[in-house]
Design a protein around this nucleic acid. Structure first.
Lengths: 355, 355
DNA sequence: AAAAATTACGTGCACGTGCCCGAAAATATA
DNA sequence: TATATTTTCGGGCACGTGCACGTAATTTTT
């Protein structure tokens, strides 16, 4: 009942012995360096395949002393964008884990409400001459221009959090936005009766650029259509995430539609809505929103928010760095798209969630 | 806007230079070997602290050539226990990742319906003299005896999947059973009307030993009590997971209680219940169960199961091995308990789930 | 056929650490 | 004081790989 996998690990030495050549020749073949006759090259390659040779990465790093530089470009963390703390943590976690392997991470931050800052930081990155880039392409056109230059300079880059599908990125790591909206539709469908109305709230300054939000709402509405649910769905856009702006928009709306049973907030700004509803004694309206951030968890705890949808932002940062590392150091080619799981958080399970 | 963490990495060489001693002396201090005067020891220790010296694990492993042997003891994978395929995969994933660091994993399997096989395999492990053990303590008394000997022999062990709280394990990695039942209660409470009844199904051969199931049901019932839900909750135990046994138990029950609206299956055997309900035209009864296994996913897809609760079994195996590795190789002491997240799977998000 | 140029391969050091062995210094014993 | 013993420390090799350099073998040129 015990299984042995006695796969012996062979090194360059054994290859050299079998091929009856020196270590240096094997080394040349492994690194595709010139100076080896076709005959011996083939012989050595055959043995490498036979032995399923895996280079000892420890020794390699130790000997080469090579260090890889990776730049990260994400929104700066602020009260308004608390979300980005998580990816940053993930990046830092990856950094400590692979520092010993010769990876240096250089972090750049931009202001999500300021395209110019994105452009400026991206230029700094290009000037610094790093080996790989992890970025959140919040501004599409600017990102396309930036990554175009990266491609020219053969610098691999990875998108996190949102994708620009047709680009030649190493990969995309982040949510499937449409699907997460679709899931929200499913959850909401359990919560509402056939008569009551559903409110979709898009709270964002730069809404015209926010493909994030669009895709989620699209998925949400499609769920209702696909499943023959005819509830009226009202969409409202609010440009500011503070209490007064929310009040100004919602007060007349809730007056006009007292039969709104569920509100779906399409991003992390759900807490402010929850708080407003509490103040006007409408705590019974069901609420569903996004992201594991402190304010939202508080609302989840006290019951003013029913569900949060989360997509492991920390792991996005972690995995993004790791993917670049594996590509740079080992030549690994990842899947073009890695969608994060769509996690459902409630009062009962948030405490165990790993962001 | 760019942050530099210019923490230079110093090595033994730099320490030796500053202390004006040889590398060997520094080495002795680091490994707490004798042969160093108290004075120089203190001097070197001070410098180590100042420089925040982190040994280069690559070089260490390379130089020492030490290999650690870890034994894993989990139920064997069968059609009946498809669940255990996932932890095994996690173990294997960890193995490939850290093989280069000198870790050898030796896998042992027992029959979950046969205590004797557990005892036999555990004895084999002890005889083999490994450095660490990862085990699923399915049989409590036998596990206590086994881990008692481990403690005597100073072999660290990690529990996965279920815990024996008072033991001196390195840590426990697995679900918070009670809490997952509580969460199930919450989900079900969204799904049932005040009048309809709820059925809890425990499907397991060795039910008397199955603390798993007990804890989940306890959490489930407590949710209803805590939240003033007075739905009648019926518990039924079925000793066999095949179709006929389920039919034999459920047919009279559903006859007697036509107003059962939701069925909560307390483990992975939910698919067979779903299939039975379909055959008798009771597909409208809502179903919630456990675990990301093929049969269950099929039911999720076709709508016969509404929710699955999952607890990352693969990661349990992966993390268990990694924890032991970090303890053995780096002397790390993990948190005593690591609870897995309690994930909710539906038709919409299962495709993105990482088990 | 000799010299020059090119190709093919081997030698040896380095990376940071572990660890054996032997030497020097300090202390104890005669 | 001379010798034996213990304590304290340094030298040097090894791990598997990368890489600079040197040399032998082969081909090309004269």
């Amino acid at each position: 009942m015990k299984k042995e996998n006695s796969t012996q690990l062979y090194g360059v030495k054994e290859i050299a012995r079998r091929a009856d050549v020196s270590l240096a020749t094997v080394d040349r073949v492994i690194h595709k360096r010139p100076g080896v006759s076709a005959k011996t090259r083939d012989k050595i390659n055959k043995i490498i395949k036979e032995l399923d040779y895996q280079p000892n990465l420890l020794a390699r790093q130790l000997a080469s002393g090579k260090t890889w530089r990776i730049a990260t470009l994400i929104p700066k963390v602020s009260t308004e964008t608390a979300y980005w703390e998580a990816p940053l943590n993930g990046i830092q976690q990856a950094e400590t884990e692979i520092r010993q392997f010769g990876i240096k991470i250089e972090k750049y931050f931009f202001d999500q409400n300021d395209k110019a800052s994105f452009v400026k930081q991206s230029e700094l990155i290009l000037k610094s001459g790093v080996d790989g880039i992890l970025l959140a392409p919040s501004f599409i056109e600017e990102s396309i221009r930036f990554t175009g230059i990266c491609q020219q300079q053969k610098i691999p880059y990875v998108f996190i959090n949102s994708d620009i599908p047709d680009r030649d990125s190493l990969c995309y790591i982040g949510p499937h936005l449409y699907r997460s909206g679709y899931l929200a539709g499913h959850l909401v469908s359990y919560l509402v009766t056939a008569q009551s109305k559903v409110l979709v709230l898009n709270i964002s300054r730069e809404i015209e650029y926010n493909h994030h939000i669009r895709r989620k709402e699209e998925g949400f509405r499609t769920y209702f259509k696909d499943n023959g649910r005819n509830n009226e769905i009202i969409t409202v856009e609010i440009r500011n995430a503070d209490h007064s702006a929310v009040k100004k928009s919602l007060a007349p709306l809730l007056e006009k539609h007292p039969d709104i049973g569920v509100i779906f907030v399409t991003n992390s700004k759900v807490a402010v809505v929850a708080n407003y509803l509490e103040t006007i004694g409408k705590g019974n309206v069901l609420l569903i929103g996004y992201d594991f951030i402190e304010d939202n968890i508080t609302c989840l705890k006290n019951g003013s928010v029913d569900f949060l949808i989360c997509q492991k932002p920390q792991e996005q940062g972690y995995r993004g760095v790791m993917t670049l590392y594996q590509h740079l150091a080992m030549g690994a080619t990842p899947e073009k798209v890695y969608h994060m799981p769509i996690d459902i958080l409630t009062r009962e399970n948030y405490a165990f969630y790993k962001n």
